[in-house]
Design a protein around this nucleic acid. Structure first.
Ligand SMILES: [Mn+2]
Ligand SMILES: [Mn+2]
Ligand SMILES: [Mn+2]
Ligand SMILES: [Mn+2]
Lengths: 218, 218
DNA sequence: ATATTATTTTAGATATAGCTAAATTATTTT
DNA sequence: AAAATAATTTAGCTATATCTAAAATAATAT
């Protein structure tokens, strides 16, 4: 598998994640920041390798083998992110691009040793679960913060967006993974929301922000 | 710079190292395990980027800028090798191929942090010096073991060949970096040599092996 | 000085991965 | 059911990095 194939397959896997049966050429083009024409070429190639089922004009469906490969790349990406944050003192908003390169290094021994060195972490710095070497993921039930009701409580466990802009904003306002929260108010008009963080700090945020914060309800 | 360009430039740098003014197309092809025709293409490209001075049919000479770039890649390669051995418990014969990939990861911050994390190592697991961030190398005067005379003493400080086959052989016979040695005998006929290691173990080796062991004389 | 040999370059392919513009197919609206 | 629109594919082009075979050049030997 080439780097490009791995990146496309990972994108298709992520786009299929929330139960969508089939992913469109345009979806992939948007995610990969390439043109639909380029995507068509790659879909044909991944189809020939049986990583996806590809029917012209009707989108694509990832195969078991494709999912296995994608999860392997996801595992590497997230392990490297843990390494960068835990060992090299990167901030959580600085790791994504580097991990995007590191995930393509080909060495099973390297990943096995890295996993051991990091003490078999279960989650990456953004709260995403790290698949084990067989591709098994321990998924916790998570809710987007904007879908919670007033007075409901929980704990921030992950973020959906890993961009530096978003993560720096969370740092600034004091939202972090592990924080205990309670919904104080929701505004129907624009979907904005006010929460209490760690029983002491009030925090007001737009719907755009709340959508990207994942909570384990309690 | 692409990965291929970095690899070629590093090869040209290494081939120029022992004072050779100019490096031939065939030399590079041998080192890179590619065909001379492919080398010609790349030499033109590196010439246009002024990483090398390239005169058709007369070989190539690395420029200051090219040397700077090559040393940057060498620095990354060797730092990663230290990481693999010191932190991930790789054997010294297992690191070369992986480092060959890792050296192309683009992130100045990553290398700066890695260097600090490893405590600013000066040598890699094969005894080769690690250039600092400005490309400065602290070179020690080293002699190939086959060039030493009977009764001369010294310390093994590096190996010239980093292949697994060679390094595993050294492990087996108990030659390692840091070992104190004394030349006991040399056979004129085939250049083979017998040495005393750490004042206790006699070791007989062929010229091929001795050529690839570098010694700091004392 | 010429011929032979070795080295190097050029010409012409292939494979990957991207693009734009045009054509085709599917979907939605009227 | 047609027409309009949106999505997707095809055709043709570019750039990188490789290769083989043929041509050109340099180095060596007679
Ligand atoms: Mn990637
Ligand atoms: Mn992540
Ligand atoms: Mn390399
Ligand atoms: Mn080394």
């Amino acid at each position: 598998m080439t780097t490009a194939e791995e990146n496309y397959l990972k994108a298709i896997y992520h786009l299929s994640e929330d139960g969508k049966k089939s992913v469109s050429t345009n979806d992939v083009a948007r995610e990969m920041k390439t043109k639909p024409a380029s995507v068509t070429d790659m879909l044909r190639k991944l189809g020939e390798k049986e990583m996806i089922e590809y029917r012209k004009y009707y989108g694509v469906h990832i195969t078991e083998e494709g999912k296995r490969m994608a999860l392997q790349t996801v595992r590497k990406h997230r392990l490297w992110e843990v390494f960068l944050v835990d060992k090299l003192n990167f901030a959580w908003d600085e790791v994504h691009e580097v991990a995007e390169e590191l995930e393509h290094i080909q060495s099973p021994l390297l990943i096995q040793r890295l996993d051991a060195y990091l003490n078999y972490p279960k989650f990456d710095p953004h709260g995403d679960p790290i698949p084990d070497e067989f591709g098994d993921v321990k998924a916790k039930p998570r809710v987007a913060l904007n879908e919670m009701e007033i007075d409901q409580m929980g704990q921030i466990v992950a973020v959906k967006d890993s961009s530096a802009a978003f993560l720096k904003y969370l740092d600034k306002v004091g939202a972090y993974i592990g924080a205990r929260i309670k919904v104080l108010d929701k505004v129907d008009f624009d979907g904005s929301i006010e929460i209490l963080v760690d029983q002491k700090k009030n925090l007001f945020m737009s719907k755009e922000v709340a959508i990207n914060i994942l909570v384990l309800q309690s």
